[in-house]
Design a protein around this nucleic acid. Structure first.
Lengths: 248, 248
DNA sequence: CGGCAACTTGAATCGCTTCAACCCGAGTGG
DNA sequence: CCACTCGGGTTGAAGCGATTCAAGTTGCCG
């Protein structure tokens, strides 16, 4: 919720730091390393490709600001977003030697990215990275479930709940309300639908689910209740004791 | 006893070992550790669940024989297979502390599984595991692309090519022909379709694509050409130079 | 002002699901 | 021995959900 370490109980001013601190206690050295890296953040224009499928992915980086997507192109020109990348997410983090990128990463908005500090000497960073990777994998599985077994409206609401959940971790969503920079066409690429149909489902969701979307900001009336309604549980990747996802 | 190291150039007698040896050079100690683990393989009946979503996943294991699936259940009772697990695949391998399984793993056929030797003291095993994990991730991305942007027939052929590719690595497929233990209903769960429609697409594929499927064995006339036709490239996760996974 | 990208809406078409019936081979038990 | 069931495969017909194509709107920016 609040950044873990010590001093501030206010939401961290930097969303990316806020997210990573929420994944694992960073300690003074981890925080310092990240802040040093953050100061080297560079700007990337929208539509720029950060990683090309089939090429060497380059050094690991952290998304500081803006949204990106991992994307797969089909021969017929249609696109499928494999996952969305939000502030605090890591890219180009690989375990195997001599890695080759398995997907293209493209900036959906203007972006700020910084190098991800090496975690070789910083166990606290290493475990934050491991958590981040585990969470990313879990959301990939969610994406498969969405595309495989949900209809258009379920997919849309499911994804909005995921975004709310992930942005909350970085302090970028409050009470089911968050900045939403994607166009309907980009939503369609994420959902395996056409932009036209996303538009229709959106209209329906506004009517039936208390969804507000003015083009810049999304507000979900009651995220928890909506999650129950469409059968979506929050993603959890560690912590043996039952969290309070209780249905008593 | 020995498999890769020295004497035989024939395919290794144990498919699981064959696959892991193909991922990274195992060396004598790695091979020995795996063979010791293989001798502890146990039988699991079909339909048994090996890991339950939301619970602690238990110790890492290797699938020695048979097929399994990672599966997500929907509230309405429909199932979606997230990935198929074949001989040589690892399960319950996590990087984060105190992990919680993000998907259920269920045996699709009768199974033999053995414990996966710890890789803490065996760098060669560690890199084989890392490769295995990277490959698994890559196939998850393929699954997303399949479900998001392919029609039924494309999905079916795409998956069959994936299976051919993966089984080849373990020495379980030759010239596009392999044992196929899945029912059409299980294929449907993997493809996000209904069993009825899988049946129809199969019939069409037999007519139009030179596919043979007698219920136990699948044969693809020309896997390479079919891959080109439907726009599928072999999965590759490392090695800047082009590998050849050639099917000569 | 024109031009462009994103959003909106309608109508026709298509792909897949749904529901149904039927076939077949492998047990199983009277 | 045959009637029975049961899981898996096969096929037809009807219905619906999503796509496609097309036209029109809005807002933004040079």
């Amino acid at each position: 919720m609040s950044s873990i370490p010590s001093r501030r109980s206010l939401p961290a001013p930097v969303p990316a730091l806020c997210r990573l601190a929420a994944l694992a206690p960073l300690g003074a050295t981890g925080t310092a390393a990240l802040e040093a890296a953050l100061s080297q953040a560079v700007d990337i224009p929208a539509r720029r490709e950060l990683i090309l499928e089939g090429s060497h992915p380059g050094e690991p980086r952290i998304i500081v600001k803006g949204w990106a997507a991992r994307v797969r192109m089909q021969v017929d020109g249609s696109r499928q977003f494999l996952s969305l990348l939000l502030p605090g997410d890591l890219i180009a983090l690989f375990g195997q030697p001599d890695p080759v990128a398995t997907s293209t990463v493209v900036a959906l908005t203007a972006l700020k990215v910084c190098p991800a500090p090496s975690c070789d000497r910083l166990p606290s960073l290493a475990s934050a990275y491991a958590m981040s990777k585990a969470i990313e994998d879990a959301y990939l599985l969610d994406q498969i479930g969405r595309l495989g077994r949900l209809r258009a409206q379920g997919r849309l609401l499911h994804l909005l709940l995921e975004l709310n959940e992930r942005l909350s971790l970085a302090g970028l969503a409050q009470n089911g309300s968050f900045e939403m920079p994607l166009t309907q066409e980009q939503m369609a690429d994420a959902l395996g639908l056409t932009a036209v149909h996303v538009n229709r489902m959106l209209k329906q969701a506004r009517r039936e689910c208390g969804l507000v979307w003015d083009g810049r900001r999304v507000s979900i009336a009651d995220p928890v209740q909506l999650g129950v309604r469409i059968g979506r549980a929050p993603v959890r990747v560690s912590g043996g004791r039952r969290q309070e996802l209780s249905t008593p």
